[in-house]
Every structure is written in structure tokens, then in C-alpha cells.
Design a protein around this nucleic acid. Sequence first.
DNA 1: AAGACGGGGAT
DNA 2: ATCCCAGTCTT
Length: 334
Amino acid sequence: MLQQTRVAAVEERYEAFLRRFPTVRALAEAVVDDVLALWSGLGYYRRARNLHAAARAIMARHGGNVPGDAAELRELPGIGAYTAAAVASIAFGKLEALVDGNVARVLSRIFRLKGDPRAGKPAMRLKEVAERLVPRDGSAGEWNEALMELGAMVCLPRNPRCDQCPLAGDCGARREGRPEAYGGRAKSVKSVREVVMRIAIARGGRWLLRRNGAREKPAGMFEFPVVRGIPPGATLEEVAGVVERELGIALRDVRELGQVRHQILDRAITVRVVAARAVDSPSPSPKAGAREVHGKGRARGERFRWVRSSELGNLPVSAAALRVARLLTARPAP
DNA sequence: AAGACGGGGAT
DNA sequence: ATCCCAGTCTT
């Protein structure tokens, strides 16, 4: 969970995950949708799929015991150089150095290492430095945690708190007077704004959700259906017409509920949320043309599904869908 | 070596 | 609006 995700965000989620899957075996025996459901909203869902696959590999290859050796850990899906070293050193007391985003920044500054610390030669140099520094007295795990913590709490990307840093006297960047000049990424990402409309169709205490395909993002997660081709000034009648044509569901009580925003890597998305009820007859379910199935290799399930709000927590849903659901709960139908 | 991957919190 | 997070895998 911590891969590319802040500790604060993970803290709220991992206890529930461990309660649901307390052992490697429990995780290995779960179906992947149940694993993804506990990952809902966290993002990077490949991590959840990899963790699930890793649990199965640990059952198959290691008799259900997590290997303590970095090289063996590295063979598991989703475990790269950083995670292998972190688990081996922190959980198993092994002598392993590691470089995460925090350590990269700290060491780049202390030794005034130029270049993007996450890629290419600079990354290699950092790993060498980390390996030279890691203590050999059995405290590698503590050392690694301390270095990461220093980066997270003191040696901050933007405004480092050098006055509180125990290593300020040893820091080349500090001596140079410009600590922020080191440890930053090479290129920046431009954010593009985008507006989409999603519709929440209610029927008999359920909402209609649609599962993303393999090429849609986030892949395989449930969302409220997008309504495409709606210009900014369109009327609700026009919206209902598009939905009826695309999904084959007649609507009543159509109303614009409000907006939710969410930030995806390079896009700032504003979601206009339209709520409506399905007219029960004649066709309460998405018409055949809209009823796609999953691509090759997946179970052939329906793209669309009527879901009770109470069972939303048992399904893999995107963060956007969680926000929309929250809005629906806050502003229920009149 | 670059790009893809989701989302959020701090600034 | 930008940065970047206790990265990894694919192209």
C-alpha cells in the first residue's frame, strides 16, 4: 500500500485490510474482486492484484511463509528493489540498503548529487551510497526507517527544516545554501482540466454501476456510467435522451445533483453528477448493445450491475465513484 | 530511458 | 496549479 502512497493515506486502510485478510493463506484464497474492494479509492490497483498474486506465489513456492531473503522477495509480483530491501531489513533484520523517494532526497542533498535521483545513473549512484552507509551491526532496518523518516518529516521537498536536522552539519546542499536545488525530479507534469458527466440511476434501492474495461481507467473498477456528448448548456431532457438511447433505460426525476472533483496524475477532473430514477417498464436493464462482456482471459461478467448502496463497500470501486456515492447520500432524492 | 498507473494532501 | 508520495512493470 505504501508504494507511491503517503503513510497518512495508508493508515486509514491497512488495518481493515489486515482484518479481512489476516494471513497469507486468507489473501491467497480470496477472489481478486474482494481484494480490490478493500483497495477501493486507494489507486494503483495493480498493487492489489500483485499482492494477491504474491500471496498465491508464497503459498505455492514458500509454503505460506513470507521469504526473508531480498533476492527471493524480489521474485514476487509487485516486489521491486525497494520493497524487497525494506521487508528484508525491517521485518527480517537483514543487511540491506534501500533508496525510496525520501532517502533519495536526503542523500542527494547531503552529498550534492545532481540529476533525477529516481532514474538512470543518479539512481545507481544513490544505491551505492546507501550501501556504503548502511550499518553492519544488525541495525540496518532501523537505519533505513530513520533515513526515510528524516526525509518525510525534516528533509522536505519544498521547504526543508534544516534547523531541525541532525545532519545539517554534514549536508553539502545546506553548506551551499540551497538544499531545494537537490533531490528534485527532472521533469514536471502539466495538469489538464476536464469535465465529464456521470449519471446515478436509482431503481428499487439500487444504483446502476458499470465496470471499466481493461483499457479504461481505473481498469476493472466499478463506476457510475459516463454520459458522453453533453455540451455545457444541455438540458436535462437532452441528457435523459442520450441515456435512453445509449443504455436503453427510460428515466424520470432527472436532476443535476452537483459536482465532485478528483485529481488523476495529469488531469483535474470535474464530475457533473446527474441523478435520476429508472422507469420500471418496459426495460429496466441496459440494452443488449450496452451489455458488453469482459475481454479475453477474464470471467465473462456483465458490464452493468444494479448495486445497493450498502454493498458498495464489497465491490471494487474507484475513488470517483466513492465521491459520487457520498454526494448521493448527502443529497438523497426528494 | 520513458511512460503508465490513481489518487490525494501539502504548498 | 504543482509537486510528489515508504515504486513497479511495461514499452
